[in-house]
Design a protein around this nucleic acid. Structure first.
Lengths: 222, 222
DNA sequence: CGCCTCAGAATTGTCGACAATGTTACTCAA
DNA sequence: TTGAGTAACATTGTCGACAATTCTGAGGCG
């Protein structure tokens, strides 16, 4: 009983599954992917599988050498730094743009989101995973508010996959919930005041801070 | 007599060919791509072709609807603006990073490149096309000098394809050669002085200026 | 003991055929 | 005349088999 979701394709479904499998570490970093093995595992032929892998290649989740197979990328600290640097540039710009382009109603909605986050942080205090989702939500909202669709897709669909991969696979210790929320609020204030310059600076600092704690965390764990 | 370049693959070759075909406008914007037609045209089966198309999809050069075919994206002004905004953020960051990470010998090499460009600009004065290649060279050098490999690939391999597509397909009129060269030189000075803050600002202004002239040009031609 | 050579095996790349879906054009009734 | 319904067609998606290339390891030579 194959669950054929209409309007989609085996290769597309498979790509999504593989993305989450890699992000969750189900397929470990550095693993060489065997086409035949994966194909039989997911019950598809090698055709769709190969197309799905081409998609992963576009996301730079795997590296491919012709005639020699693909392997899942392995995340080292240098690459984490690279990704966060790119993120700093892009999300800083997104914050700046959001000041110009975000609709008043979207700003109100973002305000509500922050209040929700606040209640969660100060309400119960064992919500590490939730915190991550909240953080993601806020950043995605800002990206969306920038009005730059390509920017939104580039960050939200491509780079965030890698960041999630880091977060999931390095059991991390973000005692940063209240601090991050506070920074979010100040970024929001800048957006509400339509102060693009300030919003960009604050966002960049926020991401730098996130990187430092994450790096510190990894340094302790490895 | 098929020219099988060893160490590569039909799908990869085909992807490159299709990229240049799209960039050069050989396959017009908005065209619906027929798999069978393209496959027979390039003398390959539909398998490699489909994989190549997956690659194009990753570059966002084509859009795909399941079971309904892919079509080449069509470039409008809004998207041009989006791309240049992203470029501004990323290359600004690249310039900042280059100040920290660029080796002295690479800086010397960049200096030589600029002198070469200067001689070309003031030597013969009918070199519009050359100017574009020079501009590209400079920016790629800075990106490479940032030391951020992912940033370099993201701009150099992905986004620049789209920018080239604009440049090629809108017969443009860059009487900006000397101005751009001057800006390049000032950016170089900042890099040489290891002044990241200034280099980022100058690079961002430079790209904003390039966008304005390009936009102005398109506005006149359409 | 180390290194090179060279089959054999395993894996990747390519192809043609079949199945599933979307599109189009025609018929017929309101 | 126009609109819905439907049947034929065209296109995309999937599969299994074959070809080409790389990897592995056993054997021999220095």
């Amino acid at each position: 009983m194959v669950a054929h979701i209409s309007g989609t394709t085996l290769a597309d479904n498979l790509r999504e599954k593989l993305v989450t499998a890699i992000i969750d570490g189900e397929i470990p970093q550095g693993t060489k992917i065997s086409e035949t093995a994966l194909a039989s595992r997911y019950g598809v032929s090698r055709g769709p599988l190969r197309e799905a892998i081409r998609g992963l290649e576009g996301l730079r989740l795997v590296q491919r050498r012709p005639h020699a197979g693909v392997r899942v990328i392995s995340l080292d600290c240098a690459e984490l730094r690279e990704i966060f640097t790119i993120r700093e540039a892009l999300e800083g710009m997104a914050a700046r743009l959001a000041c110009e382009n975000m609709l008043d109603e979207d700003i109100c909605s973002l305000d509500e989101l922050l209040r929700l986050h606040e209640s969660e942080v100060y309400g119960s205090d064992g919500e590490l995973y939730f915190k991550q989702q909240d953080d993601l939500d806020f950043h995605l909202r800002v990206l969306q508010g920038s009005g730059n669709i390509r920017l939104y897709k580039l960050m939200g669909e491509d780079l965030y996959q890698l960041i999630l991969m880091y977060r999931r696979q390095s059991r991390l210790c973000p005692a940063r919930a209240t601090l991050a929320l506070d920074e979010h609020k100040r970024i929001f204030d800048a957006i509400q005041a339509r102060d693009g310059e300030l919003a960009e600076i604050l966002m960049r600092r926020h991401i730098q801070g996130a990187y430092l704690t994450l790096q510190h965390c990894i340094g302790e764990n490895t």
